[in-house]
Amino acid sequence: MKLSAPIPVLKRKARLLARTKTIPLHQALDEVAASEGIAGWSLLAAKAAAVRPAARLFARLAPGDMVLLGARPGQGKTLMGLELAVEAMKSGHRGSFFTLEYTEKEVLDRFRAIGADRAQFGSLFELDSSDIISAAHIAGRMASAPRGTMVVVDYLQLLDQKRDNPKLMEQVRALRALARDKGLIVVMISQIDRSYDPATKTMPDLGDVRLPNPLDLKLFDKACFLANGEVRIHSV
C-alpha cells in the first residue's frame, strides 16, 4: 500500500480539514482516507499497521548493528525510531530513547501517535531528554544494558553542538564500539540536507545526509531512508 504521505502527515491534514470545513475529526479522517483510495480511516490505519516499515527494518537488525535513519522533516523518522524501540520491547528487549530534540511529554505523545501504550512496557523503556546527551553520556547510561537493547539517538547532527563535546566522528566511533562491545543496536536519526530535491530524486541516500561536521558514514552498518511514505533499507 502506497500512501501520498506518512500517517502522521495525513492525520495533520485531517485535523486541518476538520477545522476548515467545521466537521467532526472522524469525518475528516474518512475523507482523507477516501482521497487515498481507501474506504475509511480505520481500514487505512489497519492496512498501514500491517506493513509497518519499522517491523521490516527490525527484522533485519542484529546485536552490534549501527544504523542510520534519515529523512527530511515531516516524513516520520522520529516516529519510526520510536517504533523500532517498541518492536524491540515487544520481543522482550529494552528500548532506550535519547533525544536532544523533544521533551518527555512530546515523546509520550508520539507513543499514542503510533498506537502504542507506554505503560505496557514498564521498565523496558528508558527515556532520556536531558541536554547533556553525548556518546559518553549514552555509554554511561548503557553500562549495564543487556545484549539486544535498542538504543535510539535523536538526532545525529546535535551530538557535537556543544563545544565541550568531542567531534562528531569521535562520538560516532565511540557509539559504534559500544554497540559492538555490548551487543546493542544503535539507531541514529539523521537530518537530510536541504539541497535534497524530491522532485528530481525520489529517495535520499547517504550522499544527502546533512554533515555540518566531518563524518565517515561507513561507520554505519545499515541505512534506512524515508520519503513520501516509501522506505528504503540497505547495507552501507
Rank of each mutant, 00 (worst) to 15 (best):
A14D: 05
A39K: 11
A34W: 15
A18I: 08
L25D: 01
K21S: 12
L29I: 08
I38S: 01
W41G: 02
H26I: 06
E36H: 04
I38W: 03
E31F: 13
I23S: 04
P24C: 05
V32R: 15
S35L: 08
A18C: 09
I38N: 00
L25S: 02
I23T: 08
R19S: 14
A34V: 14
L16F: 14
V32A: 11
A14M: 10
A39N: 14
G40H: 07
L29P: 04
P24G: 06
K21N: 12
V32P: 15
L43I: 07
L25E: 00
E36K: 02
W41R: 00
P24T: 06
A34P: 09
E31R: 07
K21Q: 13
D30W: 10
I38E: 02
H26N: 11
W41P: 05
S35A: 12
L17N: 06
L17E: 14
Q27S: 08
I38M: 03
G37C: 01
S35H: 04
E31V: 07
L25Q: 01
A14R: 05
T20H: 15
K13R: 15
S42L: 09
L29N: 09
A18D: 10
I23K: 01
L16S: 07
L25R: 01
T20S: 11
D30E: 12
G40Y: 00
L43E: 03
W41I: 01
S42G: 06
H26P: 02
Q27D: 12
S42V: 08
L29E: 11
L16N: 11
G37V: 01
E36Y: 03
L17C: 11
H26C: 07
E31K: 07
H26R: 09
L43A: 06
L25H: 01
L43C: 03
D30F: 07
L43M: 06
W41T: 03
D30I: 09
L29K: 06
K13G: 10
Q27W: 00
L16T: 05
G40A: 11
S35D: 09
K13Q: 15
S35C: 00
I23H: 02
A28Y: 12
K13P: 11
K13V: 12
T20R: 15
E36V: 05
A18E: 11
P24H: 04
T22G: 13
T20E: 14
I23M: 08
V32G: 10
G40S: 11
A33K: 15
W41M: 02
S42H: 04
E31P: 00
G40V: 00
V32N: 09
R19P: 07
H26F: 13
A18N: 10
K13E: 12
K13L: 12
G40R: 04
T20W: 13
A39F: 00
R15P: 08
G37S: 02
P24I: 02
L29Y: 13
V32Y: 13
L25N: 01
I23D: 02
E36N: 06
S35Y: 04
A39P: 14
W41Q: 03
A39Y: 03
L43K: 05
A14C: 13
R15D: 09
S42T: 10
A39Q: 12
K21D: 10
E31A: 13
S35M: 06
L25W: 01
A28W: 10
L25V: 03
R19A: 08
S42K: 05
W41V: 02
K21E: 12
